[in-house]
């Protein structure tokens, strides 16, 4: 197995998965995002917001900044921040590191620069290592949570575990490739393949919450919406 990966990856496999296959997955990712967002907007429509006539004699005293601040804090108590603050912390850390690590990774930026002549700013590799470990630890927390907490286990299916596995694999294999404990070529091959799999899966799976989070919170009227959304579902 080891020699297979060492021999074939140099010539055919690695060149294919980091050449045409990467382009294909990026195109599917981009087109999929656009198509799915368009579909979602087609399922909803703008609704008229109702205006109630206010009593002209009643002029409420505008609440002070301090009062408004505490009202907002009080509101947060009935959101997920109030019910499961620990999970929110893990989730925010997880998503920050998940998004930032691949973009600002030194290795990715060097390859970008060598291929296209542009790159983003990059972290030192120690920072990237640390952030990858944060992602992996949070992933472990989510995994154990799905296994151990009864209320989460009730609504967990195989699909959820598969998605968690797909999201974690690029980080695990990338970490193992940088710290070559196992065969480097095998790790880097699985790393690229799993990254491409994740890119392709984003528009067509629960990973689409990357876009849908903003749509459902800020554009569609429902009990969890924030701001002043204008759209409602078309029935």
């Amino acid at each position: 197995m080891t020699t297979f990966f060492t021999n074939i990856s140099h010539t055919v496999l690695l060149d294919f998965i980091r050449g045409p296959l990467a382009w294909i997955s990026f195109i599917i990712f981009g087109l999929g995002l656009m198509v799915q967002t368009f579909r979602l907007l087609n399922l909803t429509q703008k609704t008229e917001t109702r205006h109630f006539a206010a009593d002209k004699n009643f002029i409420p005293e505008p609440p002070s900044m301090r009062k408004r601040f505490f009202r907002r804090l009080a509101f947060l108590q009935i959101t997920v921040i109030g019910t499961d603050a620990c999970m929110v912390m893990f989730s925010i850390l997880f998503h920050m590191c998940l998004l930032a690590t691949p973009i600002f990774l030194l290795g990715h930026n060097v390859l970008l620069d060598a291929s296209f002549g542009f790159s983003f700013i990059s972290f030192s590799e120690k920072t990237s290592d640390f952030m990858t470990l944060v992602v992996l630890m949070c992933g472990l927390v989510f995994f154990l949570r799905r296994l151990l907490l009864r209320r989460v286990r009730l609504i967990s299916t195989k699909y959820d575990f598969i998605l968690l596995f797909v999201a974690m694999t690029p980080f695990l294999t990338g970490f193992l490739a940088h710290h070559p404990a196992l065969n480097y070529h095998m790790m880097i091959t699985i790393h690229i393949l799993s990254g491409e799999l994740m890119l392709v899966m984003i528009p067509f799976s629960k990973f689409f919450h990357m876009v849908f989070f903003f749509v459902s919170r800020f554009m569609i009227i429902n009990e969890y919406s924030m701001g002043h959304p204008k759209r409602s579902w078309q029935y």
Partner: peptide, 17 residues
């Protein structure tokens, strides 16, 4: 705050070289 935090997290390198 979220995205600013992400950008800050990105620019402020935890272990600079």
């Amino acid at each position: 705050l979220f995205f600013g935090g992400m950008v800050m997290f990105s620019i402020v390198d935890a272990f600079p070289v």
